[in-house]
Design a protein around this nucleic acid. Sequence first.
DNA 1: TATGAATGAGCCTTCATTCAT
DNA 2: CATGAATGAAGGCTCATTCAT
Lengths: 181, 181, 181, 181
Amino acid sequence: MAREDVISAAAREFAARGYHATSIEHLLAATGLTRGGLYHYIDGKADLLIAVQRELLAPLLERAREAVAATDDPEAKLRAVVREWVRHVETHRDHMVVFAAERRLVESDPRWADIRRQRQEFEALLAELLPGDSLARLALLGMVNHMPSWYDPAGRLSATEIADRFVDVLLTGVRTPPVPG
Amino acid sequence: MAREDVISAAAREFAARGYHATSIEHLLAATGLTRGGLYHYIDGKADLLIAVQRELLAPLLERAREAVAATDDPEAKLRAVVREWVRHVETHRDHMVVFAAERRLVESDPRWADIRRQRQEFEALLAELLPGDSLARLALLGMVNHMPSWYDPAGRLSATEIADRFVDVLLTGVRTPPVPG
Amino acid sequence: MAREDVISAAAREFAARGYHATSIEHLLAATGLTRGGLYHYIDGKADLLIAVQRELLAPLLERAREAVAATDDPEAKLRAVVREWVRHVETHRDHMVVFAAERRLVESDPRWADIRRQRQEFEALLAELLPGDSLARLALLGMVNHMPSWYDPAGRLSATEIADRFVDVLLTGVRTPPVPG
Amino acid sequence: MAREDVISAAAREFAARGYHATSIEHLLAATGLTRGGLYHYIDGKADLLIAVQRELLAPLLERAREAVAATDDPEAKLRAVVREWVRHVETHRDHMVVFAAERRLVESDPRWADIRRQRQEFEALLAELLPGDSLARLALLGMVNHMPSWYDPAGRLSATEIADRFVDVLLTGVRTPPVPG
DNA sequence: TATGAATGAGCCTTCATTCAT
DNA sequence: CATGAATGAAGGCTCATTCAT
């Protein structure tokens, strides 16, 4: 049991119940630690909320940047970024739920400026890929941010397929047939 | 000051801060009531959360049904429903924020089955308008549910214009030019 | 039971045990209140520490100033101030013990500047009465501040007599016979 | 780093912040030890408080007794004892602050009878030097115990000069000129 | 000797709610 | 209708101390 495991457990619990509704007692049950043992690894409950968000945003940003750098074709850039993003939702479902649900908390606290900056950087990157149409960007943000509420890992479509469908819808509308393979 | 005003105040406070983070004290300050006075109008804090959601869903469902009944053209139905829906987000922004943020709470409590049923009915109605493509429905849900986090009543586009843009994107992709006024 | 009684009880408890060693539980036992009832009257434990000091210093400063204004004779001023001061130790023994014991806490917290200022004003007043000899002032401060650790209300000497003895010692040394009456 | 150094550090920390407000963490930072390392040298936090007081009282008592034995003149005895005492305040400022601030703790714990006895012996010795006037003894105790709150090692007067001034004030009052070096 | 993870009792405080007036 | 004092469970957190390594 290390700090890393505590953060994972926190992501799971926060995602299931919300940050405020998750008590330290819940976290103790989830980790198997005792009160003092838990606080050996963390500075406080808020610390965990931040840690969850950092685990989410830092690698996402990195992958998105790599995807952008890998090609010169604008549409390919967009498709690659959305793929990384949606895969991230898949592999970090709990983190994503927490990110979406507790946004207000993070936005309102002056201590967490770095989280806000990372989010803004990601959205700026998205804006470059969808120039001149902020509504499209906001629509895409909505689609992907909403995913955790319905995505089923055992479902018919893989994360990559979902990403491609999203891009298709965004670019050419719902009547586009799914991209093969 | 009547129960109605208390619910409005609660919507505003819950939207600003979240249900759990809003204390009775906040509601007293927002309404100008005293402790005892507030409890004359409500049964408890949870009562307010439900009331907010009922104020949101019942009229939305009614309007959506009217919109569906008003025409036979499938696309016109969809466009009309999304217009009502987005306008609802505009006029009930606080309610909408609360609805989105506290969904888990409502979903998990057996007492609030009627709220769940209303949501399901609305989604079912949406499913009829976008047959055979659950991803499109989910994409649309994402787009609209995400609105409260960026919608600016003083912004360039009206709610109706945003609704139309959303439908355009959904049907024919981002390259569709905005529908004239 | 009102806020005033809570502060009195706090003075007694803090004096007996020290601020840090006094738990909220101790205060509940001393007041007969329950947890929530206590917090109805106070903002926190630190609030009580400050309230105790304010109850001590404000009236002392007022009385000392009146005593100074009541006569023109320098020695009479000194004697009158010390009498008020020592009587204050008698009537506010608990407050005085707390004041002396928790000085560091009060001095180190930026929120409690007004307490510090009142103490400084009193010491400045003392300095005017014992010009040119800071050691005498410090000796007097020591004598009086030390009183709570030995003063017995049922003892042989009254507070006024003790005050006069202190001034005698300070001015003419220990061989001065006690002032009659 | 030996037990002795730990006690010195504890004296410093306790003096700066008070016994209760000083955590084991503070002591770890002050000593550079780790948790386990610290507990090799001590039995517990209370152990340190006692050790500090023993380091203060045992040598003071010894020096005071030597001073008393060194002459037959009563006033010279008094002067010599106060000199040793005030010098002790100078060289053991931290210990003295702790001694004064945490007296209640030591007085109330049955385990620490030896500390109490040493204090009583010192006060008895003082009583012999100021026979028949308990108020003078208490005044002197107040003067010296109050010293740590204002004494400045870099100040104008040396510890010995302060001691002499105190004795002068006690014996002949404040108008006595300072004893020449 | 020394480490540092882990313990668990206890601390201060908040909170939705009740109820005598 | 309305008040606001009082409730008491629950919350997050600190802390001196222990112990397997």
